[in-house]
Amino acid sequence: MSRKVLITGASGFIGRRLVGALAKEGWDVRAAGRDMNSIPSAQRIERAALPDLAKPVDWSPLLEGVTHAVHLAGLAHAPGMLPDEVYERINAAAVGEIATAAQGAERLVFLSSVRAQAGLSSDHVITEADTPQPTDIYGRSKLAAERLVEGSGTAFTILRPAVVYGPDVQGNIASLATLARTPIPLPFGGLDNRRSLLALENLISAISLALTSSQAAGETFLVADTEPISVADLVAAMREGLGRSPHLMKVPAGAVKRMMASFGKEADWERVSGSFVVDAAKLRGIGWQPSVATRDGIRRMMCASGGNGTTMP
């Protein structure tokens, strides 16, 4: 039986790779994006324009004839940049609309975020058993979207990815990558806090599994690489990917914080100084096998992108 999947947000960082990957797996793909020229053009791929999610959307034309759907489209995490109402409309209400419209599909996979569950750091390992406690409008809008999906009557799987990294991504942690490209010694050698990241390849394999696994039906899963990485090891891996030695100094965390503040990077410090460890054992328990180790993935990312490769949740 022919399988056809709608992918929204198909022209974005994740969507472009997912479109090509699913087409290679044998899916017929309807790829809906804002920039259709950025969507891969190949056999099995049908490109389509993504409607303006800031307004109510009639999803029926895009869903016609599809058996599955992956909803990636939404606003990224950008604190203080947009009114709460915009996040609520695009990241929640539009998700509820597509979920309701997709009731005839075999599965809707919704890409939420770990920020629907936790803030910037956590004093314990995060699992699906934790009560969701989002700390900003981005996380709250993602959690609201999850509730709409759950109540839509559509067969679904919800994924909460950790930090996603890979070539060509832009994001808040790009400042670390920029620093890694400089020849100067960096004062991060003493930052041994651990944070979970997620290789793009690992996320794509998780989405592929979520589309068809009977064990994934009606479930919510955290998604992260198997092992977290310290900030010191993260920066070292970045420099190794650029063909350089780590060249890190051990400096007290307070001094590093003051240095970051002097460059107006207080928010970046908050995103890298705390621990944020995600346990994706539930997803691995139904057969997900992340193939990329974080340190290897970071090295390859930097080699491919020249230092612009990660975004924080």
Rank of each mutant, 00 (worst) to 15 (best):
L111T: 02
L72T: 02
V125G: 02
S121P: 04
S141V: 04
Q103C: 13
G96E: 15
H124A: 11
E146K: 07
E146C: 08
D136V: 02
T131I: 09
Y138D: 04
T135W: 10
H77W: 15
A118T: 15
S122F: 07
E106C: 02
Q117C: 11
Y138Q: 09
G139Y: 00
A69V: 03
V66S: 08
I98W: 01
E128N: 05
P132T: 08
Y138M: 12
R115C: 06
G80W: 05
M81F: 12
A105G: 01
I90M: 07
T131E: 14
A93G: 09
E88S: 06
M81G: 06
L72I: 13
L108N: 00
G74H: 11
V114A: 10
G80T: 04
L143V: 09
A69H: 01
A93N: 12
D130P: 05
L143A: 09
V86K: 14
V95N: 05
L120D: 13
G96Y: 10
V70P: 00
A92F: 08
I90L: 13
H71Q: 07
D123P: 13
V66P: 02
T131W: 10
A76W: 04
R140V: 04
E106N: 06
V114T: 07
G80M: 08
N91W: 02
A102Q: 00
Q103G: 12
D84N: 15
V86Q: 08
E97N: 06
E146H: 08
A118D: 09
S141T: 04
T135M: 14
L82R: 10
E146S: 08
K142P: 03
T67A: 10
V125R: 06
R107N: 06
A78E: 11
S121R: 14
G139W: 00
Y138N: 06
A76S: 15
E97W: 03
E97V: 02
I126H: 05
R107A: 02
D136H: 04
A93Y: 09
E97M: 10
R89L: 06
A129E: 13
A93L: 15
P134E: 03
E106V: 00
Q103F: 11
P79I: 09
E128D: 12
A144Q: 11
Y87L: 01
D84T: 13
A101S: 11
R89S: 02
D136N: 05
A94E: 02
G65A: 09
R115I: 04
M81K: 14
G65S: 10
G74Q: 08
G65R: 07
G96F: 15
D84P: 12
G80P: 00
A118I: 14
Q117H: 12
L143K: 06
R140F: 04
D136P: 01
V70R: 03
A102C: 03
L82I: 07
S112E: 02
A99M: 03
